[in-house]
Simulated scan of single mutants.
Amino acid sequence: METLELSFITPRITLVAAAENYGRFAIAPLQRGHGSSLGNALRRVLLSSIPGAAVTRIKVSGVIHEFSSIPGVVEDGTQLVLNIKGIRLRSYSDRAVALQLIKQGPGPVFARDIDAPSTVEIVNPQHYICTIDDEHTTFEMQLTVERGRGVQLADTVSGMPIGEIAVDALFSPIPRVNFLVEEMGDDPLTGYDRLILEIWTDGTIKPGDALSHAAQILAQYFGRIVNLNQPEEPEPSAHLPPPIPEEIASRTIDELGLSTRTYNSLRRAEIHTIGQLLRLDDRGLMSIRNLGAKGIEEIHQRLEALGYRSGSSSRLPAAPSGETAHPGESSHKEE
């Protein structure tokens, strides 16, 4: 294969402006014509492929379908579903999570009234849901939260139990992306492009983190193309590790009692549960910014105290029968 000489100018990524749930980034210099190609690719991935969480279905006490009226509540089923779609949240569980809302009126009901487990965080607690207009009414609703990408329309959900109402799930945390390409230099032939990228989020993810995630997705595709003519290595025939029990996978890293530096590094990398840690090997942990070898060793020690090891094929608790392994009692101690 003929080797082609590559001419590449390393661009700089600069945060130009920032506000709540908004970021404006400049990427320059880029070779002429590359700004539009890069901007369009990033925009499409940002809008379609960033994972998020949403309410996928609800069950309201005394209501059979979404076109029913709700006793003691101003809104009907249709209006309630529309309001539910506006709840923005983070889910740290890979499985569906049930939330409960019980409110005795009268008065408005907000997202903050929802009883959520530790694996779910409501980002907009002031979001309005409905109003109870009868002092004798107790409004009860169960919400199911799931993780996904893009949009899941309620019309595509089948096999729902009687009494459960499907909700249009807006998983994507990126509602809007714009990009603009500016010319750098006076000569249209030898000049460069500057890519201006604007990202709006729903508050569940930072604009910079979303941009980084989108770039990683594109890099995975381009990495395969770069190695197009290289023979693929056979995948190892080692047995896959056993699945992680949900009761362990959904536990938060707060229970590990990690030092402040290690804990903050994991949180910035969007790692919030023990299950996420167990799926990472040492190479994956090393890729986490500001973690380092000392932090990785600390994580191993804390997980081994529970009878687990990250990235290991042995994921079953190693504690003797009748005994329970516990992580350190202290929480986020300073190093």
Rank of each mutant, 00 (worst) to 15 (best):
Gly185Lys: 13
Asp186Pro: 04
Asp186Met: 09
Pro188Met: 10
Pro188Phe: 13
Leu189Val: 11
Tyr192Gly: 07
Tyr192Glu: 09
Asp193Ala: 13
Arg194Tyr: 12
Leu195Val: 09
Ile196Ala: 13
Leu197Gln: 13
Glu198Val: 14
Glu198Gly: 12
Trp200Glu: 12
Trp200Arg: 11
Trp200Ile: 10
Thr201Trp: 08
Thr201Ile: 05
Asp202Gln: 09
Asp202Tyr: 09
Thr204Met: 02
Ile205Val: 09
Ile205Lys: 01
Lys206Ile: 10
Lys206Gly: 10
Pro207Met: 11
Gly208Cys: 13
Gly208Lys: 12
Gly208Val: 10
Asp209Cys: 07
Ser212Arg: 14
Ala215Thr: 01
Leu218Asn: 09
Leu218Thr: 09
Ala219His: 11
Gln220Asp: 08
Gln220His: 13
Phe222Pro: 01
Gly223Cys: 08
Gly223Arg: 10
Gly223Lys: 08
Gly223Ile: 05
Ile225Pro: 02
Asn227Met: 02
Leu228Thr: 03
Leu228Met: 02
Asn229Met: 02
Gln230Gly: 03
Glu233Tyr: 03
Glu233Gln: 02
Pro234Arg: 04
Glu235Gln: 03
Glu235Asp: 04
Ser237Pro: 02
Ser237Gly: 06
Ala238Pro: 01
Leu240Val: 11
Pro241Asn: 05
Pro242Asp: 04
Pro242Met: 06
Pro242Glu: 08
Pro243Lys: 12
Ile244Phe: 10
Glu247Ile: 06
Ile248Cys: 03
Ala249Leu: 08
Ser250Glu: 04
Arg251Cys: 03
Arg251Leu: 06
Ile253Asp: 01
Asp254Thr: 05
Asp254Gln: 07
Leu256Pro: 00
Leu256Ala: 04
Leu258Trp: 00
Ser259Gly: 06
Ser259Glu: 05
Thr260Gly: 07
Thr260Val: 09
Arg261Lys: 06
Thr262Tyr: 02
Thr262Ile: 07
Thr262Phe: 03
Tyr263Glu: 00
Ser265Asp: 11
Ser265Ile: 04
Ser265Leu: 10
Ser265Trp: 02
Leu266Ala: 06
Arg267Lys: 10
Arg267Asp: 08
Arg267Asn: 07
Arg268Cys: 09
Arg268Glu: 10
Arg268Thr: 12
Glu270Pro: 05
Glu270Ile: 07
Ile271Arg: 02
Ile271Asn: 00
His272Glu: 03
His272Gly: 03
Thr273His: 03
Thr273Val: 05
Ile274Tyr: 00
Leu277Val: 14
Leu277Asn: 07
Leu278Phe: 02
Arg279Cys: 09
Leu280Pro: 00
Asp281Thr: 08
Asp282Ile: 03
Asp282Cys: 03
Arg283Gln: 06
Arg283Glu: 04
Leu285Asn: 00
Met286Lys: 13
Met286Thr: 11
Ile288Cys: 00
Ile288Arg: 00
Asn290Tyr: 15
Leu291Gln: 14
Leu291Phe: 15
Leu291Ile: 14
Ala293Arg: 15
Lys294Asp: 15
Ile296Lys: 01
Glu297Ala: 15
Glu297Ser: 14
Glu298Asn: 05
His300Ala: 12
Gln301Trp: 11
Arg302Thr: 00
Leu303Val: 14
Leu303Gly: 01
Ala305Ser: 15
Leu306Ile: 05
Gly307Ala: 13
Tyr308Leu: 13
Arg309Gly: 06
Ser310Cys: 13
Gly311Ile: 13
Gly311Glu: 12
Gly311Arg: 01
Gly311Gln: 10
Ser313Tyr: 12
Arg315Lys: 12
Leu316Cys: 12
Ala318Tyr: 06
Ala319Lys: 11
Pro320Ala: 14
Pro320Tyr: 15
